[in-house]
């Protein structure tokens, strides 16, 4: 145990000397902060319009209720604005009619909705035969914020593994691994000592990021279990790549090898239909995504968390079993 702590202590000391640990702990918090500033803007915008100065005031104030309106001087300016990359529609009164100017590649539903809305305004004397009201069930978290927080946590946990990877490559490059091999510390103790930081930093970073994003009522125990299990995957990958490479290029390229399954798993979990989700069952990131999603939605049950974490654990073990020889050879 003392030796494990010695390895950990040395890594912390190293990390503090070049501010690395502080940096690693702060990075997810910083991103969470930026994300927090971005989210309200994203969920607030549905419809962007561009109109001429001096357009019919009633129409303008009607559209202003649900659209963001930019004003320009001429029809040419409207067209120029509409043709730019983002989705902005031009609205202009021509005689008794109203023209909606589109580029042509916008979402059809949005164009139809806008036409309907303007028609509604122009027929404001017609009475709607039923009462319409809007209520809600009091759930304030936007889906974008939940997905964003989820991806941030996954990346943070993978970065724990990356820290080990970079540390190992560093050891390899400075030939300190051979010194470890002849010292009294056992290989197991060394591996555990090296891994601890890779587990702790993601936990600290993730909880901090979630607090910044105002997820205050989540089940922290469930989150920690999930982070520990996905941390195991990252650590196994980190060691497997790190211990074998004395050149950082391949190590960094392998990092891509971790990022792409992560992004594919998240995209698949969001977009694939229920029947096709089977295609992602091999990915530990998929199970971690499901866990974190349930945690952020306050829907996580102990059964669900343990079942998914068990899946991650089994997959990590399988990866380890495949790479075991490689890792051991790398140490020698």
């Amino acid at each position: 145990m003392r030796k494990i702590i010695a390895v950990l202590y040395r890594d912390i000391l190293n990390g503090l000397r070049d501010w690395l640990i502080l940096y690693l702990a702060i990075a997810p918090l910083l991103i969470a902060l930026i994300f927090r500033l971005v989210v309200p803007g994203v969920s607030d915008t549905n419809l962007n319009l561009v109109m001429k100065h001096g357009e019919d005031q009633q129409l303008v104030s009607y559209l202003d209720d649900f659209a963001k309106i930019e004003y320009v001087d001429s029809l040419e300016d409207i067209e120029e604005r509409v043709l730019r990359m983002d989705d902005v529609f031009g609205v202009m009164t021509v005689d008794e009619k109203v023209e909606v100017i589109t580029q042509g590649n916008e979402r059809r539903e949005m164009i139809d909705a806008l036409k309907l809305l303007i028609n509604r305004h122009c027929h404001s004397d017609v009475e709607v035969p039923i009462n319409i009201m809007i209520s809600d069930v009091g759930w304030g978290e936007s889906p974008l914020k939940i997905e964003g927080a989820n991806i941030l946590i996954l990346f943070t946990s993978v970065f724990g593994g990356m820290l080990i990877l970079l540390n190992m490559v560093d050891e390899k490059m400075s030939n300190t691994l051979s010194s470890i091999n002849v010292s009294t510390i056992s290989r197991f103790e060394f591996v555990v000592g090296k891994s601890i930081l890779g587990f702790i930093l993601p936990i600290v970073g993730s909880i901090g990021a979630l607090l910044i994003l105002e997820f205050e009522t989540i089940n922290i125990a469930h989150l920690v279990i999930t982070l520990l299990s996905i941390g195991l995957t990252s650590v196994v990958i980190g060691f497997a790549i790190g211990v074998y490479n004395d050149e950082p290029i391949a190590a960094i390229a392998s990092m891509k090898g971790v990022f792409i399954p992560l992004i594919l798993s998240v995209a698949g979990a969001i977009y694939l239909s229920d029947q096709l989700q089977v295609l992602l069952f091999w990915s530990p990131f998929y199970w971690a995504y499901q866990n974190i999603n349930a945690i952020l939605l306050n829907e996580s049950s102990t059964y669900l968390i343990f079942r998914n974490s068990f899946n991650i654990f089994i997959i990590s073990l399988a990866v380890f079993a495949i790479l075991r020889k490689r890792i051991i050879r790398g140490f020698d």
Binding site: A113, L117, N131, I132, D136, V137
Partner: peptide
């Protein structure tokens, strides 16, 4: 007398609510 109540989740912005109502 018919009343249509659209029940949302709660995170939707005011402009989105206006939009749905008007649509």
């Amino acid at each position: 007398n018919i009343t249509l109540d659209i029940v949302l989740q709660g995170h939707e912005s005011q402009s989105l609510r206006n939009f749905i109502l008007a649509e």
